Structures are given as structure tokens and as C-alpha cells.
Amino acid sequence: MSREAAAPGLGHNGGPPLEDPDPDAGYRAYVWRRAHRKAWKTPPPEIALRRLARAEELGMSYKAYTLEILERGRYL
């Protein structure tokens, strides 16, 4: 480890951090990755074709249209 990385910054008193590390950060990252994978999993062909047709009507790409559905929780 380099000396600059080990030394505390200017004005630092060398005490413990004010905020405790988050013990659930790893679990939340796991849950987020799992939900992200599930959300972007390829849907059945009927749904994909319907979304593609609607996206083309709106002048959007399939991915942008799907992202809007996922963000808003409803169809445009």
C-alpha cells in the first residue's frame, strides 16, 4: 500500500469513522442484481412482439420502451 493511501487526509484526527459500515450492503447488492436479471430476462415471444409493435408506434426502441414500463410500473 502506498504511503499516500495509508496516511489520513489533511484535517483528519485519526479517529474512527463517524458512520458505521452498512452490514446489509452485500445483501442489498445481491437482491438488486437478482431483480435486475429477472426484469431484463427475455419475455415470451407474444409479449416481446407486442412491446416491439407498441414501441415502434411511439417511435421508441424496444429497450427504451421496456425501461419505461419497468420504471413506471404501467404501460404507456
Rank of each mutant, 00 (worst) to 15 (best):
T66I: 02
Y30L: 13
R50V: 03
A6N: 07
W32R: 14
I69C: 14
M60V: 04
E19L: 15
R34I: 02
P16M: 05
D22H: 03
G11N: 06
E68P: 02
L52E: 11
R54K: 13
M60W: 06
W40E: 00
G26P: 00
L58V: 01
P8V: 04
R50E: 13
R34K: 13
G26D: 12
P43L: 15
P45S: 11
W40A: 04
Y30V: 07
M1D: 10
A53Y: 09
H12M: 07
G59D: 05
D24P: 03
I69P: 00
Y65H: 01
G59S: 02
K38W: 07
E46N: 07
D22C: 09
A29Y: 04
Y75I: 12
R37A: 14
E4K: 14
P8S: 06
L70H: 13
G59F: 07
M1P: 06
T66Y: 07
L49K: 12
K63S: 12
Y75W: 12
P8I: 05
R74E: 07
P43W: 06
R37F: 03
L10A: 14
G11V: 01
L10W: 13
A5Y: 09
E68W: 08
R54A: 14
G15L: 10
I47F: 03
I69Y: 07
E56L: 07
E56W: 05
A53S: 14
